[in-house]
Design a protein around this nucleic acid. Structure first.
Length: 1140
RNA sequence: AGAUCCGUAGCUCAGCCUGGUUAGAGCACUACACUGAUAAUGUAGGGGUCACCAGUUCAAAUCUGGUCGGGUCUACCA
């Protein structure tokens, strides 16, 4: 075994990581970190499965670092943390990738290429970059079980999904219904939201928009409108006579950018709280008098202000300015239920037809909907349930039926009059395409049913493949009735610990409140098939919940139906649960009819949301026993998750599907804590994208700067949930500042510990017996442990990391080591030195354990180096030991405070030295520190020695309050006084500012003072003010807060000589170093005669010799070969030689 | 359009929950020092209307409301 601490020749993080990786591999460090905790309490972690059909990016590094550090931390706290990896393998991105690669489109599948071949291609493509991912996982130090991951395309996985779906089905939570989905008539296919979000699909187009007039029926629902009308007419001095032949008409005005949907109109929707007005005016096309209902806020869009109350009587076709007049105002809710005349009646949309499709439907009425705005249009929304999701929803609620007068090719069906057979948009690139929307508008104009027709430019989605406008179309789909359990899901969500909180309450909470049923259907090829078989008339259905069940049903169907039915699946049963095989299977209904599979696949998000169960697979014994959790072990100890973590973009993705399935089927949360991290942007705050060329290659970053520096940077630079502007310079800074400093500290320790043979073999010196500074750093260290633990427990790794950084840099390196350097290289190997070694060792070892979760490599390297010599643990890796626990008895608040005082005072003295230009090497006689109270003096006395040596001062003199000598200032303590005084604060503050030195002294003597504020007596206590010294007349002083120091800058002859001596020592040390002498080499020194310096050097001969490891100083003339040095402006030659 | 996060020095971020009177670090820049840890370190300097507006309060970077700008998610609508 090595007895020396390893020393490095320079800090090379990547190479250290290589070494550690090799060790982990060879020693099975990860596996051991799990098996060492056998029998311990589990901390359950779920790995959100990435899709391995694309390259990993730097943004994957951040969430995986978070996952990893939490798991490592919990392991170090004694929990057992199993981390099963997983791969998301189904879904559109995979399919699109394969289509692109093969140069085919969806329509070609099943034609140019068989479904079987196509799916085979998908299966191959999906793990294409698995090696790259595994490589990144290893190199970034992410510990996750890669040997036995769950893979969503495996039969066992799909089978569990089927089991879950069947549970939903049995509970009536899985149902088939029509939904309005984006649909491309040109391509003949529905589009997923993903496809709709392809770049460039939304385009600005000019469409014919029409504001049309729906004629209100005159009955009790609308009576208030007609009454308002007749009242207005009656009160008018010369009203327009409602002619007998032409009864007054009231129109509801609605706007549409898709006039082709008008024949399918079945309702009008208004906002309940929106104000509407009944306006008397004329139709600008027919010039007939009309009375229209429109949202009050939108009147100005249709009528000019100058036309208000215009001359309605003398209006003619030639009148330029349309006169108008508000007759009545009312809320939208008053319009609810109002009926109107059908706008464009044809044979295909007669009431009989409508009720044939939807029995009992009551169309052509006004409804109230919350989606109505007064942004544009008229505030009355033309509602055609087939062609808009909102329309469908509100229509269904009000039972107005549904009409789909356009077929899947995008043309009007037969029975729509002159429009029959015409395409609603130019889907076929026809040469002489005439826009049917224009024709519809013209027809309406002629019929006095259009008020305004114009071209309207808006943003509309287009099919990314055909470039043709999408339309929203009703398609059959299977849904999970998530809304049935909405309240429970909201309730369960309240028990989840969200980081950050707002994502859970806001983004996720609101999402739950407004949740709609989950549309599971996807009409694609590569995915989990819906395990539902139905008869042709849809009367009988069967949902399959396991492979065994399917095989049984396969046999049964074959027996009942006979013939060739299922003949390929009789022997071995079904071997692959994907298309096309499942589609070949025919089952039989209880009534003996053949059943075919419902053609849909399910949403991939169901795949990943079901991973808590499917990752373990279905257990048949438990299933047969009727276990409510029939999954393989270790499911029971691994549900729900203690912790999961993914990007915020998963809030409505994975987080939601996990939550929904767990709530729906198991009345449980799926995870107790969830951390959602923000995005990684480039250094300018732009999203990284291949297109912009600003993506950061994680491999290159890790290879150049090391995984630890990268991880540390990602974690400490910003809170995980804030977006991170990724800047390479930031990593460089981390590397230099944090790892560099820590490395130096370790290197320093190793250097001297090796010289002295310190192996931590001596008995531990009780902390109480160690010097003040040791007790201080140990107190700070324990405070650090306490704070880091708190931060980590609260899932605030950013804070934890920053705390560690501050400790290493400010306390350990720049104060403890700096002040203690002498203790390591001077003197004998005895108590004080051993205490120093033990202290520094303990600090290093603890720091390394604290940082291990975030920086797993470097921490392990240092830990191993320390432990190989000291053998304090019988464990190989820092990741196997326990996380440090703070020892409260070692925390001394007073001590930490006074050390802060010492640091502040030293810094003040250094600034004074700088001001008067006296270097630190020149000793000074004394420093004066006014003390405001005995406690402060007691504190200072304890750190006096440290201050003296740090700033090279002989004596500290404390100035107690001798009146007049110290000038004091007084300031109200706002926190204390504010509460007491409230509004009088300003006056008191003014009064205190005017205090004289006598006033202050009086307050200090009596402990209180009475002030007269606006005739009121106010008593101010000593502890309600802050008194500080500000000046010592006749001295150069420096202040910081309540602290003041004054420096005696007289340099006596004696001090001067000592200064020379020190300067000389410094020069010789430099020579030693330049000559590459070992720190322990003894030397001889020859000095050229120099009268001024000889005196100084002789006086301090002993001191000098001790410092530079010389036996004597020899003064004799040097003729040649000497080194010229400069000691306080005196030039001097010297020869330094190694002895022996 | 809705939800949410963010806006503090040239850059990266603390401080905000729990309001308190000189708003802090680090990086970068400039000058000086220190040097047996040296690709480190210290001291000093410049640099801020705490995005904007209004309110609450004796007191607002901090609390409330609104506006603007940026990001993300969801939706896409007559």
């Amino acid at each position: 075994m090595s007895v020396k601490y390893r020393e490095y020749s320079g800090l090379n993080l990547p190479s250290i990581e290589q070494e550690i990786l090799a060790k982990w591999n060879e020693q099975q460090a990860f596996e051991k970190s799990v098996s060492l905790r056998d029998g311990a309490e589990s901390f359950v972690f779920y790995e959100g499965p990435p899709s391995a059909n694309g390259m990993p990016g730097i943004h994957h590094v951040i969430s995986r670092t978070l996952k990893d550090l939490v798991c490592r931390y919990k392991t170090m706290q004694g929990f057992q943390v199993k981390r099963k990896g997983g791969w998301d393998t189904h879904g559109l991105p995979v399919e699109l990738g394969v289509e692109k690669e093969l140069g085919i489109t969806k329509e070609d599948i099943g034609k140019k290429i068989s479904v079987e071949e196509y799916n085979q291609k998908c299966r191959e493509a999906v793990l294409r970059f698995k090696d790259k991912w595994d490589d990144l996982t290893r190199k970034m130090g992410y510990w996750v079980d890669l040997n036995d991951p769950y893979i969503t395309f495996k039969n066992e996985y799909i089978e569990t999904l089927w089991y879950l779906l069947k549970q939903l089905y049995n509970r009536g939570l899985l149902y088939k219904s029509v939904s309005i989905q984006p649909y491309s008539p040109a391509a003949g296919t529905g589009l997923s939201s993903h496809e709709l979000n392809q770049p460039g699909t939304y385009k600005d187009v000019k469409d014919t928009s029409a504001t049309v007039l729906f004629k209100a029926l005159h009955n009790e629902k609308s009576i208030f409108l007609f009454e308002a009308l007749s009242k207005a007419v009656a009160s008018a001095p010369t009203g327009i006579e409602p002619a007998e032949t032409e009864p007054a008409e009231v129109f509801l005005m609605a706007w549409t950018t898709t006039p082709w949907t008008l024949p399918s109109n079945l309702g009008l929707t208004v906002g309940g709280n929106i104000d509407y007005a009944l306006v008397q005016t004329f139709n600008p096309y027919t010039h007939l008098p009309v009375n229209v209902v429109i949202a009050k806020a939108l009147i100005s869009k249709y009528f000019k202000a100058e036309g208000e109350n215009g001359d309605l009587e003398n209006y003619t076709a030639e009148t330029k300015l349309l006169p108008w007049k508000t007759l009545a105002e009312f809320k939208g809710s008053q319009l609810d239920g109002l009926e109107y005349e059908q706008l464009l009646p044809f044979e295909s949309n007669s009431l009989e037809k409508i009720q044939e499709i939807t029995p009992g439907a009551t169309p052509f009425k006004v409804m109230v909907g919350d989606f109505v705005t007064t942004e544009d249009g008229t505030g009355i929304v033309h509602t055609a349930p087939a062609f808009g999701a909102d329309d469908y929803k509100v229509g269904k609620k009000n039972n107005i039926g549904i009409l789909t007068l356009v077929d899947r090719e995008g043309k009007f069906i037969e029975g729509t009059g002159e429009f029959s057979g015409r395409y609603v948009k130019d889907y076929k690139d026809e040469k002489d395409y005439v826009d049917v929307n224009v024709d519809i508008s013209v027809k309406l104009k002629k019929e006095n049913r259009a008020f305004k027709v114009e071209k309207y430019e808006h943003n509309y989605p287009h099919c990314w493949r055909t470039d043709k406008p999408v339309l929203y179309y009703p398609l059959d789909a299977w849904f999970i009735k998530t809304t049935a359990l909405r309240d429970r899901m909201v309730e369960l969500n309240k028990t989840i610990h969200w980081k950050p909180k707002s994502t859970g309450e806001g983004r996720f909470g609101n999402w739950l409140e407004n949740m709609v049923d989950w549309n599971l259907s996807r009409s694609r090829f590569w995915g989990t098939p819906l395990p539902i078989w139905s008869t042709e008339d849809g009367a009988d259905m069967k949902c399959i919940g396991s492979v065994e069940e399917l095989n049984t049903e396969i046999k049964k169907a074959s027996e009942v139906l006979g013939g060739d039915v299922n003949k390929h699946y009789l022997h071995d049963g079904i071997l692959d649960l994907h298309k096309p095989y499942v589609d070949e299977v025919v089952l039989v209904s209880d009534s003996g009819k053949p059943m075919h599979r419902e053609p849909d696949l399910i949403d991939v998000w169901f795949d990943s949301g079901a991973m808590p169960y499917a990752q373990w697979g279905l257990n048949y014994e438990k299933l047969k026993a009727g276990d409510p959790h029939p999954f393989n072990q270790p499911f029971d100890t691994n549900f729900p998750a203690s912790f999961i973590c993914e990007g915020v973009d998963q809030t409505r993705g994975w987080f939601y599907t996990l939550h929904a399935i767990a709530a729906l089927l198991f009345d449980s949360v799926a995870f107790k804590t969830v951390v959602s991290n923000g995005l990684v942007l480039d250094k300018n705050g732009n999203k990284m994208s291949k297109r912009l060329g600003n993506v950061v290659d994680p491999f290159a970053t890790i290879e150049t700067f090391g995984a630890d520096a990268t991880r540390w940077y990602l974690i400490t630079n910003a809170s995980p949930w804030d977006n991170l502007k990724f800047d390479i310079d930031g990593i460089k800074e981390v590397q230099r500042k944090f790892f560099g400093t820590l490395y130096n500290t370790y290197q320093f320790f190793a250097l001297y510990a090796n010289v002295d043979g310190f192996t931590y073999s001596e008995a531990k010196i009780p902390v109480a017996e160690r010097p003040e500074i040791d007790r201080w750093i140990i107190s700070s260290l324990n405070t650090l442990v306490k704070d880091v633990t708190r931060a980590m427990d609260d899932y605030e790794p950013t804070q934890a990391g920053r705390l560690i950084e501050d400790f290493v840099d400010e306390h350990l390196s720049n104060w403890y080591v700096r002040l203690c350097r002498r203790r390591f290289w001077k003197g004998e190997y005895e108590a004080d030195k051993i205490a120093a070694y033990q202290t520094l060792f303990e600090c290093l070892e603890t720091v390394v354990r604290l940082m291990a979760p975030v920086a797993p490599f470097f921490s392990d390297a240092v830990f191993r180096n320390l432990n190989e010599v000291a053998s304090r643990y019988n464990l190989q890796s820092v990741h196997h030991v326990l996380f440090p626990e703070a020892d409260e008895t070692l925390i001394d608040q007073q001590l930490e405070e006074r050390m802060q005082l010492a640091q502040d005072i030293s810094s003040l003295i250094l600034s004074l030295r700088k001001k008067v230009n006296i270097k630190v090497r020149q000793p000074l006689h004394k420093v004066l520190i006014p003390v405001l109270n005995p406690a402060m003096k007691a504190q200072l006395e304890k750190v006096e020695e440290l201050i003296k040596s740090e700033v090279n001062i002989k004596e500290v003199e404390y100035l107690v309050d001798t009146e007049g000598f110290i000038k004091k200032k007084i300031k109200p303590n706002f926190v204390a006084l504010g509460k007491k005084l409230g509004a009088k604060m300003k006056a008191v503050s003014g009064a205190l500012a005017a205090f004289t030195q006598e006033n202050i002294s009086e307050l200090e003597r009596n402990g209180a003072v009475e002030l007269d504020i606006d005739g009121e007596k106010v008593s101010i206590l000593l502890n309600e003010v802050d008194i500080s010294s500000e000046d010592i007349p006749g001295w150069t002083v420096a202040n910081k807060g309540a602290l003041t120091v004054a420096l005696d800058i007289t340099i006596t002859e004696d001090l001067k000589q000592e200064g020379d001596a020190r300067e000389f020592v410094n020069r010789v040390q430099k020579i030693r170093k330049d000559s590459d002498f070992d720190v322990t080499d003894r030397i001889t020194v020859q000095i050229d005669t120099n009268p001024t310096l000889k005196n100084s050097l002789t006086t301090y001969k002993d001191y000098i010799c001790a410092e530079i490891l010389a036996d004597a100083l020899e003064f004799s003339p040097i003729s040649a070969g000497g080194t010229e040095i400069e000691v306080n402006e005196h030039k001097l030659y010297t020869i330094v030689t190694k002895k022996g």
